[in-house]
Simulated scan of single mutants.
Amino acid sequence: MKTIIHKAETRGHANHGWLDSHHTFSFANYYDPERVHFGTLRVLNDDIVEGGMGFGKHPHDNMEIISIPLSGDLEHKDSMGNTAVIRENDVQVMSAGTGIFHSEYNKNKDSKVNFLQIWVFPKERNIKPRYDQKTYDPKDRTNRFQTVVSPTDPEAVSINQDAYFSLGNFTSGQKTNYKISSPENGAYFFLLEGKIKIGQETLEKRDGIGIWDASTLEIEILEDAEILVMDVPMKN
Rank of each mutant, 00 (worst) to 15 (best):
residue 225 A to N: 06
residue 157 V to Y: 11
residue 212 W to R: 10
residue 27 F to G: 00
residue 77 K to V: 12
residue 81 G to N: 07
residue 233 P to L: 05
residue 151 P to R: 00
residue 107 K to G: 10
residue 1 M to Y: 13
residue 130 R to H: 11
residue 85 V to N: 07
residue 190 F to K: 11
residue 106 N to I: 00
residue 121 F to I: 13
residue 84 A to Y: 02
residue 57 K to N: 14
residue 14 A to Q: 11
residue 34 E to G: 12
residue 115 F to W: 10
residue 159 I to L: 07
residue 75 E to A: 14
residue 196 I to L: 04
residue 121 F to M: 12
residue 226 E to W: 09
residue 139 K to L: 10
residue 182 S to P: 00
residue 225 A to C: 06
residue 231 D to Y: 03
residue 58 H to Y: 03
residue 67 S to D: 02
residue 205 K to Q: 11
residue 167 L to I: 15
residue 47 D to M: 02
residue 55 F to L: 14
residue 25 F to M: 08
residue 87 R to W: 01
residue 163 A to D: 08
residue 10 T to H: 12
residue 41 L to W: 01
residue 53 M to Q: 11
residue 190 F to R: 02
residue 25 F to C: 06
residue 198 I to C: 05
residue 102 H to R: 06
residue 230 M to E: 07
residue 206 R to D: 07
residue 161 Q to S: 07
residue 41 L to Y: 06
residue 8 A to W: 06
residue 27 F to S: 08
residue 148 V to Y: 01
residue 167 L to E: 14
residue 65 I to S: 00
residue 141 R to Y: 10
residue 80 M to K: 05
residue 17 G to M: 10
residue 48 I to Q: 00
residue 144 R to G: 07
residue 106 N to Q: 06
residue 62 N to L: 00
residue 222 L to M: 14
residue 110 D to L: 10
residue 127 I to V: 15
residue 41 L to M: 01
residue 131 Y to L: 05
residue 106 N to G: 06
residue 48 I to L: 13
residue 94 M to H: 00
residue 88 E to V: 09
residue 113 V to Q: 06
residue 152 T to D: 13
residue 109 K to A: 15
residue 219 I to Y: 02
residue 53 M to K: 15
residue 107 K to A: 15
residue 122 P to Q: 04
residue 119 W to M: 07
residue 104 E to F: 02
residue 46 D to Y: 01
residue 24 T to V: 12
residue 216 T to L: 15
residue 47 D to T: 00
residue 229 V to E: 05
residue 14 A to W: 09
residue 63 M to F: 08
residue 63 M to D: 06
residue 79 S to L: 04
residue 232 V to G: 04
residue 182 S to G: 09
residue 74 L to Y: 04
residue 222 L to H: 06
residue 218 E to K: 10
residue 176 T to Y: 08
residue 208 G to N: 02
residue 149 V to H: 03
residue 236 N to H: 15
residue 37 H to N: 14
residue 48 I to A: 05
residue 161 Q to H: 02
residue 163 A to P: 00
residue 37 H to E: 13
residue 32 D to R: 08
residue 24 T to C: 09
residue 215 S to P: 09
residue 125 R to D: 13
residue 162 D to C: 03
residue 37 H to Q: 12
residue 185 N to K: 08
residue 47 D to P: 00
residue 68 I to D: 09
residue 25 F to G: 06
residue 162 D to G: 04
residue 212 W to K: 12
residue 235 K to Q: 15
residue 54 G to F: 05
residue 193 E to T: 14
residue 78 D to M: 09
residue 183 P to F: 09
residue 22 H to R: 14
residue 37 H to L: 11
residue 76 H to F: 01
residue 118 I to N: 04
residue 124 E to C: 05
residue 171 T to C: 13
residue 12 G to S: 09
residue 217 L to I: 15
residue 89 N to S: 03
residue 26 S to M: 09
residue 20 D to A: 02
residue 87 R to Q: 08
residue 147 T to V: 12
residue 171 T to H: 13
residue 231 D to H: 02
